[in-house]
Design a protein around this nucleic acid. Sequence first.
DNA 1: TGATGGATTAGCT
DNA 2: GCTAATCCATCAG
Length: 205
Amino acid sequence: MGREELAVDPVPLARRLLGCVLEARGDDGVVRVRLAEVEAYRGLDDPASHCYRGRTARNEVMWGPAGHLYVYFVYGMHFCANIVGLSDGEPGAVLLRAGEVVEGRELAASRRPTARGGGAVAKGPAVLTSVLGIDRSHNGVDLTDAGSPVRLLAGRPVPSDRIHAGPRVGVAAAMDVPWRFWIAGSPAVSTYRRGGRARTRVRRP
DNA sequence: TGATGGATTAGCT
DNA sequence: GCTAATCCATCAG
């Protein structure tokens, strides 16, 4: 997929990414995932975006050129991957939430032995990254470069009536914007969880 | 400089 | 439905 196709507003970009294939090559083999669920995060206007509070070392990649991978670490143990959209100076990205494993199922299953679906689905953003073997070292990778370990490939287009939209998962801010998109009926789509205050934090004595 | 809580997941009740 | 696991960016003091 070319950079021009990706250098657009993250909301239409999110729709376009459904059905596309993300390929990750590692020492142990190749895994390909067909994207089934994504969410748009629109920089400066969006209180839920990592860019909302300005440019920092963590979100640096989002200010860079489109078509690069933004990887961040959450909850002390998980990675999430985004595809950067728009062009220089205009931050925005699409969070990759889930997909179907279309190649390298065994490898995917071995990387995530406890995941449901026997390696056929990557249901949830952190499952997706671990199945693909994506971690901090992949932050900033150019998805449009044939030599990159992670690449974005065009897939079968998804008919627009199969694309559904709704509120983003686990996000407290801007719950009214339907910037989560998924392929209706896909077994990979994650179950919706409302955002809000963190679940009760029990402090050990 | 210390506290807080998150674009989460899996396992248990 | 509830909670532990566990790093680090951000914010309050």
